[in-house]
C-alpha cells in the first residue's frame, strides 16, 4: 500500500511535523510513503499532484487552520483533485493555534465533504490545538502514541480509532497557562521587533 502526504501548510511547521510523524508510523507498518507540498501546485500546475495521487492508495492531508477553514492553496488543490481521487482512502490531521481543538471541527467536515464528493473512503481526522508551540522539540509522547494508533488502523484500511483522536486532541497545558504564555510572548516580540504598536490600526481611514 502506498500513502501520499498532502502538505497543506505554506510553512514548514507543525503541519509538517505532525504529517511526517504519522508517515513515519505508517512506514513502520510497511507502507511506501511520499509527500507533496500543495502550495507548489499554484506555480507548477496540478499535474504532478494528480499523478502522485493516482499512484497512492491512501491520502493523508496535514493542514493548519486558516480563518476557520483550510488555507486557500489547500482548497485549490482539493478543487483540482475533486475528479481525480476516486477510490482512494483519505484521512486528515488539522492543527490550530487556538487552545481548543474544536475550532478545527468545521474544516474537518470540509475535508470529509471533499472525500464524499471525490469518491474517497473517509477514514477520519485528528484535531490538534495550541499549534506548533506546544509540540515541543520532539513530538510529545501523547502525539506519538496517537499517530501510532492511527497508523495501525489506517494500514489495515480502517478508520482512525477514537482513542487516537482523543489523545491528539488533549491539551498539553491548561488553557489559562497557554493564553498567559502566548500573549506574553506576542507582546514581547512586538516590543522588541515590531515596527508599530501591537494594536496599530494602519488600514483605518
Amino acid at each position: 500500500m502506498r500513502v501520499l502526504l498532502l502538505m497543506g501548510s505554506p510553512r514548514e511547521g507543525a503541519s509538517l511535523r505532525l504529517g511526517r510523524a504519522l508517515m513515519a508510523s505508517l512506514k513502520e507498518q510497511g507502507l511506501a510513503t511520499e509527500e507533496y507540498y500543495l502550495v507548489q501546485g499554484l506555480t507548477q500546475g496540478w499535474g504532478k499532484l494528480e499523478s502522485a495521487v493516482r499512484q497512492a492508495d491512501l491520502l493523508i492531508l496535514s493542514s493548519p487552520l486558516y480563518v476557520d477553514s483550510l488555507p486557500a492553496p489547500t482548497i485549490a488543490a482539493l478543487e483540482a483533485l475533486a475528479d481525480n481521487a476516486a477510490g482512494k482512502r483519505m484521512a486528515a490531521i488539522l492543527n490550530c493555534g487556538f487552545p481548543e481543538p474544536f475550532h478545527n471541527t468545521t474544516a474537518l467536515k470540509i475535508c470529509r465533504q471533499f472525500a464524499r464528493r471525490a469518491g474517497c473512503t473517509w477514514l477520519g481526522g485528528m484535531s490538534l490545538s495550541m499549534g506548533g508551540f506546544s509540540l515541543g522539540k520532539g513530538l510529545s509522547r501523547r502525539v506519538r502514541i496517537s499517530m501510532k494508533l492511527a497508523a495501525q488502523a489506517l494500514a489495515r484500511g480502517e478508520a482512525i480509532p477514537d482513542r487516537a483522536v482523543h489523545l491528539a486532541a488533549r491539551k498539553p497545558i491548561p488553557k489559562w497557562l497557554y493564553l498567559l504564555v502566548l500573549n506574553g510572548v506576542f507582546r514581547r516580540v512586538v516590543r522588541k521587533h515590531g515596527k508599530a504598536p501591537i494594536d496599530a490600526q494602519p488600514y483605518f481611514h
Partner: peptide
C-alpha cells in the same frame, strides 16, 4: 459552495484579512 466551504478564489482573499485582527488571544 465548495465541499461545504468557500472556493479557493474567495479564500485567498479571506486568508489575507488576518492583519485586521490582532494576534493576542
Amino acid at each position: 459552495v465548495t465541499f461545504g466551504g468557500y472556493s479557493s478564489v474567495l479564500k485567498k482573499a479571506l486568508d489575507r484579512m488576518i492583519p485586521n485582527i490582532c494576534g493576542l488571544f
